[in-house]
């Protein structure tokens, strides 16, 4: 695993926590512990996502492109097999 993939896996891990906690909160909307965990995951995710996007380009289209080139297509797509 290279540096880019390592950082990406951190984003993936925090985002997954939000997906899982989000499902739980849909049926337990007043669970303050789960809400607290969600808030932590969100903060951590934002932090590593910002780091990743500064270094390797956008993770989604909700991202300000630079003035000269369209970086969205630069980093490899996640299904591509490494050789």
């Amino acid at each position: 695993m290279n540096e880019r993939e390592k950082l990406l896996e951190q984003v993936m891990a925090y985002d997954f926590c939000m997906i899982d906690l989000g499902l739980f909160l849909n049926t337990h909307p007043a669970d303050t512990n789960a809400l607290k965990d969600y808030r932590t995951c969100y903060e951590q995710s934002e932090k590593v996502r910002k780091l990743y996007e500064e270094k390797y380009g956008p993770l989604s289209l909700r991202h300000m492109p630079n003035q000269h080139c369209w970086q969205w297509i630069d980093s490899p797509w996640p299904w591509v097999k490494e050789v």
């Binding site: 695993m1 990406l8 896996e9 984003v11 993936m12 985002d15 997954f16 997906i19 956008p58 993770l59 989604s60 289209l61 909700r62 969205w72 980093s75 797509w77 996640p78 299904w79 097999k81 490494e82």
Partner: peptide, 15 residues
Amino acid sequence: WFYEKKLEYPVRIKK
């Protein structure tokens, strides 16, 4: 939906 340029969980198969 907005696409996120990552998988939900890593898949890295070599063989």
